[in-house]
Nucleic acid binder design. Structure first.
Lengths: 285, 285
DNA sequence: CGGTTTTTTGACGATGTTCAACTCTTGTGG
DNA sequence: CCACAAGAGTTGAACATCGTCAAAAAACCG
């Protein structure tokens, strides 16, 4: 913690461009169609054919999209539908009887909230949006014919769910073993990788879809401690966080401070994109 | 924490009977056949027919059982087989580069280690036994014909996996939000419910398949702190823990201290058994 | 611009860790 | 059956991490 490489803090003031708000506005090759977002996500697991992509695109297009961009609660308990996030972000959480809240999952564009398979009663878990969001609400039964006819898509959907589980297990490691400093760094790494995978990063900049209070609920820390530790990360020259705009100043140092190994995300595409594209944008780091 | 009901500590010295070692030795209706263990587990989700039970029994019988009772490492990364625990216990864990270890999942008799569906590369996760154990190693492909022919069994297997996920999410809540005292209490509640569901409890007594050091790795605490907090639980009259033998002295108080709600375990049978049978064994509490 | 949310700060206390030593139990081999 | 070694549990003291409370400053939104 104390032996991390330190840098002067340049706090690059690049103006407060709305990150991730506009589709395809300078972000790295964002998909054009809503369904393309889902296709891109599943493309991490299977190379989809044009036909398969089209089927997914139709699926999303055919189902009503709440919009444009409002805060809403995406069901709790067992719902009969799955929500695909098109814009914005959401989270799954659980609340203890005395009010303590734990955020369990973060959903970003391209993520499916809920299972495509018949689900168990999820008890006291709920899903709400963290920011204004656009979602496509797809009844679960709409997946059935696709799963029937396109086994590769079915496999990709199953793998997608397994990756979500893998993320949960990594969160257990994160909260259980890492210090506050490492935890925050790790979450930032994870989020950046995932955002990069759906083209919602610009260079080493992205939108952080959480307030510090929500970060606290996700990482099992208090909001005050989050604040102080974020300042630590800043003064160590690892990140620049102002409002919702997160800039990673030293990706290598951040990842090593977090002991981050993105393997569990299974984001083949993102990894390549970050290494080959984004990283090179800041060759001096 | 400090406002818990307190009781005198009777430390019942009932002799050190080997708990859970012998099948059907006084434990509440233990199953007779190895496959019956799996059938009982899946029976939590679906009412199985005799034929379905028999198929599961055959599956387990046909595949080699390591035995009798040795310590072993049940694969790491992606293996092509699934291990059914028949006796003893195991855990899945992950190790950070600097040696910190987080236990992710506890496996007790009747649990399947690994997925029946084609799995992703699990990266750096490993499974080892915590105690001497007997397991049936079932190649994943052996499930295929059963899943094909018995959709109800397939559904139960899928639900079983989903419950495992639910447990993971509850662990995130546990480690993220609860204090050490509450965490330990919660794990004890969870374990007792699960052991009761496979008939490995006697009254309010069961075998705790973890050392205090392993408890620490599972709960994100240090071994020393586990020790001190367990003593707290003892002096509060909630439990009696000597060696591997755990006796719950005040189930209601333990559950309320842990804010435990067993719904996430989906152990319909166990819940009923504990309430109707075990709880009544100690009517004075 | 006014009100609300979010971020920041300080002081203090609680929770949890580390290190090191010691005891107790358990299992093993002579 | 005992002696021994290894592992597990226990203890104390010093310390680090993290939480709570309360208030102020800053950013955000209509």
């Amino acid at each position: 913690m104390d032996t991390l490489p330190r840098y002067a803090v340049p706090t690059p003031r690049t103006g407060t461009a709305a990150l991730g708000a506009r589709r395809g506005s300078g972000s790295d090759t964002a998909p054009e169609t809503p369904g393309g977002l889902l296709a891109r996500k599943l493309g991490n697991f299977v190379d989809l054919s044009d036909q398969e992509r089209e089927v997914l695109d139709d699926l999303v297009r055919q189902h009503r999209q709440y919009g444009p961009r409002e805060h809403l609660s995406l069901e709790n308990g067992h719902s009969r539908s799955v929500s695909l996030i098109l814009e914005g972000s959401a989270c799954r959480y659980k609340i203890l009887p005395d009010g303590r809240r734990q955020i369990l999952t973060l959903f970003i564009p391209g993520d499916l909230c809920g299972r495509c398979l018949p689900d168990l009663d999820l008890g006291d878990e709920s899903i709400v949006t963290l920011t204004a969001a656009t979602v496509a609400v797809i009844p679960r039964q709409a997946f059935a014919p696709i799963i029937e006819s396109y086994p590769r898509v079915a496999r990709a959907l199953a793998w997608n769910a397994m990756v979500e589980e893998g993320v949960h297990r990594e969160w257990i490691v994160n909260i259980g073993q890492r210090t506050g400093y490492e935890r925050i760094a790790h979450l930032f790494c994870e989020l950046f990788h995932r955002l990069a995978a759906v083209g919602l990063t610009q260079g080493l900049r992205c939108e952080l879809p959480l307030t510090q209070g929500e970060l606290a609920d996700a990482l099992g820390l208090s909001a005050v401690h989050i604040n102080r530790t974020v300042q630590q990360l800043r003064s160590d020259g690892l990140i620049c966080l102002r409002g919702r705009e997160l800039t990673i100043l030293d990706f290598a140092a951040l990842q090593s401070a977090a002991m981050f190994d993105g393997q569990y995300l299974h984001l083949s595409q993102a990894a390549r994109r970050i290494e080959a594209g984004t990283m090179r944008t800041y060759p001096d780091l």
